[in-house]
Amino acid sequence: MFRRHLTVQPDENVLAFRDGVLLGVFGPGRHRRRGRTRVVRVDTRRRLLVLAPQDVLTADGLGVRATLAVRWRVVDPVTFHAAATDAEAEMHLAAQIVLRSAVAAVDAENLAARPDAVGSAALTAALVPAATAVGVEVDEVVLRDVILPPAVRDARTELVTARTRGQARLEEARAETAALRALANGARLLEEHPALARVRLVEAAGPGTQLVLHVGDDARA
């Protein structure tokens, strides 16, 4: 006999058990509830799992710290409830294993230079089997941060600084070369055209300056 009602919210599913037997899965809405019925509510909203920084080894044996973010949601509430005593802990462990395997396949230099060297699609695909086993659908897995050891960070900073200084010196040398080339071209032009040299001299002279120009055998003041 139905004795009372069960209200299921839009963001959940409810598992109904009676005498240890699953009676059914109820979606959002108002449902009749039999006596001695035990209910288990399962949140179906999207969730975010963020791993704390993990100490992992790269392909070349360098220890780094990395974090992983997983967006997931429950799509099979029965499996989510029955497959493990703590399905979220299972997801956490699976994400740790995926992170370690992914970082171990890339060397430290590539990982530091290109954080996307471990693609989101590959990480997601690697986590799907473990997630499916507990009734979870994985929307996205992202490698958030890669933290190099201090000595490696300092070495990379020195390398970038040296490259920047070298580039600055190269640009300075190019500018000096261009200036010298312009001076040489100007000197050649003045040598080939003496009249132009005299015009430049007049332009460069300040007001009130007395100039004596020699043109052939004539002299003018």
Rank of each mutant, 00 (worst) to 15 (best):
A205R: 12
R181I: 02
L15W: 11
L49Q: 03
A151S: 10
T7I: 11
R3G: 06
L51V: 09
R38V: 13
R153K: 10
P115F: 03
V134G: 03
E137N: 06
A168E: 08
R71P: 04
R200Q: 14
L123T: 03
V56T: 01
A133W: 09
V103M: 01
A162F: 03
T7G: 09
L62G: 04
R4M: 00
T164R: 13
Q210T: 15
F2L: 14
R144I: 01
V56P: 00
A133D: 08
A16V: 15
E12G: 05
R34G: 15
A113S: 12
S120P: 02
T85H: 04
L15V: 08
D218Q: 09
E137T: 12
A16Y: 10
T132H: 10
D107R: 09
V75D: 06
A221C: 04
P10K: 00
A113H: 12
Q96D: 07
R46I: 07
A102C: 06
R114L: 10
R181L: 07
L22H: 05
V56S: 01
D116Q: 15
E191S: 11
L180P: 00
R4A: 03
V134F: 03
A126E: 04
A195L: 15
V146S: 04
L15F: 12
T37Y: 07
V56A: 03
A204D: 02
R41M: 05
V142D: 11
V106Q: 02
A182R: 02
A162G: 08
A187S: 11
A52T: 08
A104I: 09
S101T: 12
L170W: 14
E137Q: 08
A219N: 09
R198W: 13
R174A: 09
V98Q: 04
D139T: 11
R169A: 14
A131V: 10
G61F: 10
V118S: 05
R181M: 05
T124W: 02
G206H: 12
G208H: 09
Q54L: 06
A95N: 05
R45C: 11
L23N: 06
V215T: 13
R114N: 15
L123V: 03
R73T: 10
A175Q: 11
V14W: 02
